[in-house]
Design a binder for these strands. Structure first.
Lengths: 242, 242
DNA sequence: TGGTATTTGTCCGTATGTATC
DNA sequence: GGATACATACGGACAAATACC
């Protein structure tokens, strides 16, 4: 592990362990560089990551303040835009709950003009189209529509789609999933939504649209996930630019 | 303006002007440091900001790839978690549309245990509570419930709440709004929601919960915004940690 | 009020490691 | 293997905001 990653991990764990209180200041950069025996640059690299994730905030002339203590054990499944379904379950400590994935469609397609408009993949490109339903405790919560570039996510199969496509991409294909760009909106439930999800009286679904990029900066996935509104939580951080 | 900010702004404008195509590479860091007559540190500071906003992605050993061209003229109002209502209108080029704000409640309160649980302000703290309804083209789209720390947002009035509280905080109180932490979920519409918002057949609203921090790392605002589901879009970027 | 020390912000230069071509 | 490009790390200098006496 890199030096700055060790420092990042150490500080993060101390914050999570409440070793530094909310609104308290970390030791000064000067003190910390001595403690970690590193240069100020390296320390600040670690700090900037923590700041990016919303753990701390540097205040000019004063110090570095702790502004966030993550909470565990939410009642709903909290998503953050980049994780796989499985990852979210783990982070939310809900793996003891029964999770299941059902494949409705597994197909290979060629992008036509309609698909181009939807996915923004170029016309003529070969893609996989996969439709899956996600269950927790036997309740259908999410309908996933995934479109993958075939040349990047080679050799996808039904079996892989049932377990974890992201794991396949990262472990087997050895590609890194780096970044997503997403939007969330609400749509009226379709016939299919009503059929598959037990909406418990709701007449709408939450639709998360995602564009996913690998470590080469290539978009290899477009997906629309239709979520049961009662079990949908999305969270994040935002920074104001000056 | 700082040197790295100039470089950031210059590169950003060039990307937006499509001077660099999607998936194309920027000139190498070496070339750019010469062009901008700066150190590699300074250039990388600028690049890291662009990466954070999802414009570029560095690829080890290859170069820095453009991965995003912002789009304009969405049909819905796109929010990003940190802007004020007014800011969003401007960014979405919808200021020519008629925007209006109505104050339903303007009150000073002291945090009790129930409010503490809701807002996470400590018991006994003095706060402002403001309930507002946001209209675009005479259609009620958002019900805002804002809670402000009175000691930080001093001197708030109804008149200010009708125009722009954020403008007051930044221009008059000279405080900077730096960061928000937010979550989004869907809730069944309440009586009040149905009364105020014309939900056009929807039976639910989008609820955005925000914790807002100033440049001192102090949380000074808690708010819940109940959005008309048909006119709600939330978008952002997420990065996967390794 | 003012000066000094502390703390973070910006910027520079250099060296070495690692991935890609 | 060599050249190129980004990643990590060290060190130093000065500016700007803040705290303290």
């Amino acid at each position: 592990m890199k030096k700055y990653q060790k420092i990042y991990a150490d500080l993060k764990s101390k914050i999570e362990a409440r070793e530094y209180e909310l609104e308290a200041f970390l030791p000064s950069e000067n003190v910390m560089t001595k403690h970690y025996d590193c240069s100020r640059n390296t320390l600040r690299n670690a700090l900037s990551q923590l700041a990016q994730e919303g753990y701390i905030q540097s205040i000019h002339g004063k110090g570095v303040r702790v502004i966030f203590h993550p909470q565990r054990n939410q009642s709903r499944l909290v998503l953050d835009g980049i994780e796989s379904f499985k990852d979210s379950l783990v982070r939310n400590n809900q793996l003891e709950q029964q999770a299941k994935t059902e494949i409705k469609v597994f197909a290979e397609m060629i992008v036509n003009s309609k698909l181009e408009e939807l996915t923004s993949f170029p016309i003529g490109m070969e893609i996989y189209y996969i439709q899956r339903v996600r269950y927790i405790n036997d309740q259908a919560l999410i309908i996933d529509h995934n479109y993958f570039r075939k040349d990047i996510v080679e050799g996808l199969t039904k079996d892989i789609a049932i377990s974890s496509i992201y794991k396949y991409i990262e472990k087997t294909l050895n590609q890194k999933i780096v970044r997503t760009s997403w939007t969330i909106m609400v749509e009226k439930a379709t016939e299919e939504d009503l059929e598959i999800l037990d909406l418990e009286g709701f007449d709408c679904v939450c639709v998360a649209t995602k564009y996913v990029f690998n470590d080469q900066g290539m978009m290899f996935e477009f997906s629309k996930s239709r979520h049961h509104p009662k079990h949908f939580v999305f969270s994040g951080q935002a920074k104001r630019n000056n």
